[in-house]
């Protein structure tokens, strides 16, 4: 093992993460190389200094705040949990629009119901009349029928007689 290979593995050697063969090789090199031994000593020294810096304990109340936040997350899922945010916004917008339209209609109800069915009936009748007007033979028959319905002048005279 040369110095470069030794220094590449020196951290893993210090952490005792090397396998037997590599560990033996690095130890053999360190035995012979004062520069790498110095490097090892410098790394150990830095380790000793760094471990003095301990992280503080969480402050009092941290556990309570954490549990409160986790409690929120553990709450049974509402609609917002299974609807995508955009879908939820769309749903809310739709509900709002429906509420506004409903409110306006409640405040200003229409003056009279729209005569839609009758209008439609009239239009159909007119269309049928137009068809009839184009059929002269039929018109003549209709005149005859009308005449028959109302009663012929002879019948009326007869009735008058009886």
């Amino acid at each position: 093992m040369d110095c470069r290979a030794c220094r590449e593995r020196i951290r893993e050697y210090l952490r005792d993460r090397l396998g037997g063969e590599e560990k033996n090789a690095i130890e053999a090199h360190l035995e012979l190389c004062p520069a790498c031994r110095q490097e090892l000593a410098a790394e150990k020294s830095l380790d000793r200094l760094l471990v003095q810096w301990q992280a503080p304990e969480p402050r009092p109340g941290f556990q309570t705040r954490l549990e409160a936040a986790l409690g929120e997350a553990r709450r049974p899922a509402g609609p917002s949990a299974w609807l995508a945010p955009w879908a939820l916004r769309l749903l809310y917008a739709g509900l709002l629009a429906a509420a506004i339209v409903g409110g306006v209609r409640w405040l200003h109800p229409p003056l009279a119901p729209a005569p839609l069915p009758e209008t439609k009936g009239l239009e159909v009748a007119m269309a049928q009349d137009l068809d009839l007007l184009q059929n002269l033979d039929l018109l003549e028959n209709l005149d005859l029928l009308e005449y028959w319905d109302e009663g012929s002048p002879e019948d009326q005279a007869g009735n008058g007689r009886t």
Binding site: A55, P56, P58, R59, F62, R65, L66, A69, L70, A73
Partner: peptide, 16 residues
């Protein structure tokens, strides 16, 4: 520390 605690809280929330 306050930011570290906030980060820890957020980490556990994300894990859950």
């Amino acid at each position: 520390l306050p930011e570290a605690e906030e980060a820890a809280q957020e980490t556990f929330l994300r894990v859950y």
